[in-house]
Structures are given as structure tokens and as C-alpha cells.
Write a protein that binds this DNA or RNA. Structure first.
Lengths: 129, 129
DNA sequence: CTTGACTCTATAGTCACTATAGACTTTATA
DNA sequence: TATAAAGTCTATAGTGACTATAGAGTCAAG
């Protein structure tokens, strides 16, 4: 299949697919006589793997490392484990941040009644303090 | 005070301060004879306001709008209210995403015992599916 | 045979910074 | 007083993970 079809079946934009190729995350595809990229089942799987990793917010550098590890099936997966644990720690941190953030925003939202002027606005006041 | 001192008292890096100025978020400071920026109480307050907004993940374009609104104290603060509500909605969305993310990462982490090889690794398997 | 859809490469833009180079100014030390 | 060190200046490039655009080439249908 050509890049347009791969894009549709995976939901990745065409530019993103080309970008992943450039970054060495997708293996170099064959080309037609007219220089169009040609993909098969393998590319589809590679792309789905990347998509899945990205949906977990795993950065592309780490995705690349995971792909390299996948290609060394006999090695220990301790580093895979570590990578996921780090990712989990990041997510936990971010969640904690967002909770605090949410609390403050809610507090702010409740301090403003729409009839106010900017001058009297509780939101502006709390941002100022 | 000069930019270094402002940087230390606010915790904003020097480059960030200059960046905010360039983007029109900080008012243009006076200069010494040697062309050094000179700041006073006002700049300090402006910068604290921006910092507070940023700590709430409010994008700089919106911070700019808030600053403009602050300077029109007689207008209605409905738009301030709306902006904060949108920000809250964003945060809520992101929290929902992160919850799902965390669940999957935890699931993955628990599917890997460190003694495994990459080949048998539960994490790689679940990323593949 | 031409129109339109698709693809190609190369480049610039996004956001909010961070980092660097190379020059200038000011302060501290010898 | 000379000089070294610290601070500041502007301008530019880099970050991550894309997205958008320009301008050219390819291919299938009418």
C-alpha cells in the first residue's frame, strides 16, 4: 500500500509517517518506479507499535530504544522494565501537579461571578497574589 | 535592579525574562548608560503574575490576554471567567487521559519480572498488541 | 490530453523556552 | 592602575513531536 492508505488505516498523518522514517523509527520502505513509498504488513505493525508507545506518552527516543531492544530478543528485559517504571513515575508526578492545578483553578472559577468588572474580578485578584 | 537580580528573586531564568519582554508580556524596562535593563517593583509584579499563570499551565497567548484585560478594569470579566473555565476543562481532560495511561503502565509493569528475556517480556508483548 | 488526486522533497512554523557565540560593561582583585 | 572575572547585551540555533506549505513530479479516470 502507499503512504495515504497507511495513513488512513493507522490514523497517523502522512507527514508524521515520513517524520518517523526520517528519525529511524520506521524501517526504510521500498519504492515504486515513480518513487512512491510502498508499505506492507511489517510497516503497519511497526507503526502501530510506535502509536501505542506514543499513546502512553513515551518519548520517541525511548520508543527507539524499545524497538532496538525488541530486535535483541535474547537480552534481559530489565531495561524495558526500567523504562516503563520511569514513565509511570512521570505520569504520577504529572497527575499530582494537575490535581493541585485543578484545585486552584476551581477555586478561582468560583471566585468570579459573571456580572463583575475586571477590577473586582476574584480571578484576577487571585492571580495577582 | 538588574536582570540577574530579578532572575534570582523570581526564579525565572534571564533568557526567559528577555523572552517575555520580546513577546510583549513584560513592559519595556529602562536602561542604564551601559544599556543594561533596569527593573523595579512593577516589573517584579508583572513577572510574578506571569509566573502564577504559567504555573496553572495557562498558555502565554492567554496570559497576554489576561494582562490586557487587567489594564481595562472597567470591562466585564466574563472573558476572564471563560478563559479559566476552558483551562479547567483542559486540565480535567488531561487528568482523565493520565488516569488511563497510568492504569495501562501499571498493568504493563506488573507483567514483567526482571529475570525475563526481551523475547518473553510481558511489556513488549502488550506494546505489540 | 487534461484534470484531479496523490505523492515527492525541502523548508519553515509551532510553543515555551534553553543554549550558545561573540561582544560589551561593570566590579573585584593584584 | 591593570587585569581578570562576573555580569550583561544581541542574535541565532536547538529542543520535541509534530504540522503546514511550496513547488514539482506521478498516476488514473474521463
Amino acid at each position: 500500500m502507499k503512504i495515504g492508505e497507511l495513513s488512513k488505516t493507522t490514523g497517523c498523518s502522512i507527514q508524521t509517517i515520513r517524520y518517523y522514517e526520517k528519525e529511524g523509527l520506521l524501517s526504510t520502505p521500498e519504492r515504486t518506479e515513480g518513487n512512491y513509498r510502498l508499505y506492507g504488513e511489517r510497516a503497519l505493525k511497526e507503526l502501530e507499535f510506535i502509536k501505542h508507545c506514543r499513546s502512553l506518552d513515551i518519548p520517541l527516543t525511548d520508543v527507539k530504544r524499545l524497538i532496538e531492544l525488541k530486535n535483541k530478543p535474547e537480552e534481559s528485559c530489565a531495561s524495558v522494565n526500567k523504562l516503563i517504571a520511569q514513565q509511570l513515575a512521570l505520569v504520577n508526578n504529572r497527575m499530582r501537579e494537575l490535581k493541585a492545578l485543578k484545585a486552584e483553578l476551581q477555586q478561582m472559577a468560583s471566585s468570579c461571578t459573571t456580572e463583575n468588572t475586571v477590577e473586582a474580578c476574584g480571578i484576577i485578584k487571585s492571580l495577582d497574589s
